[in-house]
Nucleic acid binder design. Sequence first.
DNA 1: TTGTAGGCGTTATCAA
DNA 2: TTGATAACGCCTACAA
Lengths: 339, 339
Amino acid sequence: MKQKITLKHIAKELNVSISTVSKALKNSEEISRDTKEKIQAFARLYNYKPNNIAISLKNKRTKNIGVVIPDIVHHFFTTVIRGIEQYANQKEYNVIVCLSDESFDKEVINMEMLANGSIDGFIMSLSSGTQRKNDYEHLQQVVEQGIPLVLFDRVTDQIACDKVVIDDQMGAYKAVKRLLSSGRKRVGLITTEDYLSVSYKRNLGYEKALAEFGVEYQDELVLKLPSMEVDEQRIADFLKNARPDAVLSVNEIFGITAMRLIRDQGRKVPNDISVIGFTDGLLSQYANPSLSAIRQHGEEMGREAAKMLIEKVEGLTDSESFVTKILEPTLIERDSTIN
Amino acid sequence: MKQKITLKHIAKELNVSISTVSKALKNSEEISRDTKEKIQAFARLYNYKPNNIAISLKNKRTKNIGVVIPDIVHHFFTTVIRGIEQYANQKEYNVIVCLSDESFDKEVINMEMLANGSIDGFIMSLSSGTQRKNDYEHLQQVVEQGIPLVLFDRVTDQIACDKVVIDDQMGAYKAVKRLLSSGRKRVGLITTEDYLSVSYKRNLGYEKALAEFGVEYQDELVLKLPSMEVDEQRIADFLKNARPDAVLSVNEIFGITAMRLIRDQGRKVPNDISVIGFTDGLLSQYANPSLSAIRQHGEEMGREAAKMLIEKVEGLTDSESFVTKILEPTLIERDSTIN
DNA sequence: TTGTAGGCGTTATCAA
DNA sequence: TTGATAACGCCTACAA
């Protein structure tokens, strides 16, 4: 077993001092050509690579980014991670992924672990537990310690930090406007309760579009589920009782489920009911009929978050001033809507 | 901004030595009750937490696991990560995720970065680039350096290390047997070329089941695509020309796509053609009709891999002997197959 | 041109 | 009971 070699080994082997080796490997002018060549050759031969941990300790910089997300088995978060990785890798950062599992406690524990030197900064999206509890003390701590933080998608304005979001209100607005423009009269909304920041904003967009078209808001056309769990019974009842002729769903699973239940109830998508869903993941693309969707641009969001974070980490950006980058959602028209 | 506090700060503040502080915080018997209480109170007040990096350097143990996978926007890998996280978190390990993007070069670069002290061990699934190139030098290096390695799903027998796989051959066998038992005569296979270890084994299972039922293997009933990209045209041609009455697909996207094309060609699933797909992700569940699938037990695979790795890392397991854990795939019956 | 020494934050050994 | 010292691996200011 070839043990990893250190400066010390090389120094002893070649009868020079550690600092000479260090300098030689950095091609320092101070060291004679002969010595450098000898040392570099030896290092190459034994495949010397500096120890990241030692360098981190010395530099107080780990080149690691901590990413804390609620769930990884979720297309949107997964695309965000991909975006983060893209940018981070190119800047030679590694990504440590932690899952909060939608739980406040896990979010806190994970962040505390990482905050003790393991990472240079955080990129995160709040767990539903945290948003429900409305307690951001752990984020505040991190910020006060001077650890850069970028929040994405599920954010809070109670913390001053950089943020990247899509304009959720605009997304919902676009969708509902599109539905009303195509002649739909009873546009339903399947969403979650308001504590989730994104749901709240999407609900606003829904209302705004209705208002703009002079359509009165009707409670019975809005189904607010307590969580992101699919509750088929409630969705089925909603469809039957409220009799919408169009539905906007706050995520694609609700949308797909609604489409199936609509068919079960003997109505047709898109002829009888149009459906649009947030998120635009694989399900929307491959559904039958394919689901028109609000695309959230996860990869771009991830790249943007990583960029903002790394700029803060490397001090390229004023550490006291924060920006919120708002990406514009796109409406992707597929087969679940009529013109 | 509250800077992170160190032993040194505490020592200076309380006029004791660093080592006294260190011991006091570990509740050492050596230190007097008074001193301990004073120091502990102070530490609590200033929320002292030891620096992970310093501890890593000292202990030569990072409590980080490196996970290298081909792609993260992929339900199966994502469930594996979740399984890894579950086990790792509970053992207080963090997970560093790197994406090889199906590229040999990226895989090598990522591993080299992490191997320089950032992690205690690797869990990985080979990129298609690596399997195509059939070059495992980088894995060999890691192993020779004494870094524990666990391979999952896409593995190679050219490297001696722990492995976790599902029995891919068995999975395909089960599926094809099921199709033949229900009276199907022309069972097609949509797969990728053999360089992908899992495809190869699934192809074997397909052949085995045919043989067992005395059905002759026919080239025209097997479509081997060059990569995991969906090539609709080739799939459509295949369906039209080979006229299978059942299809097994090596992943769910091929399966879903086939179902749609079948319908476009005026045939019905499952009445005219049964379809079974590997992977069992969201698409299979929510497809219409829902897709019968071979479940790969990603989460369990992840937990198992993490367990094996951490046991090696912590020396609970002989570092010279390796096991391959084979999980049994499950056939999930849904609406795309008849009885 | 090369080497010494100190420090990053922690722990462990040994001395006081 | 407390403290000094060395060590983990690396870097760098300064001395030789």
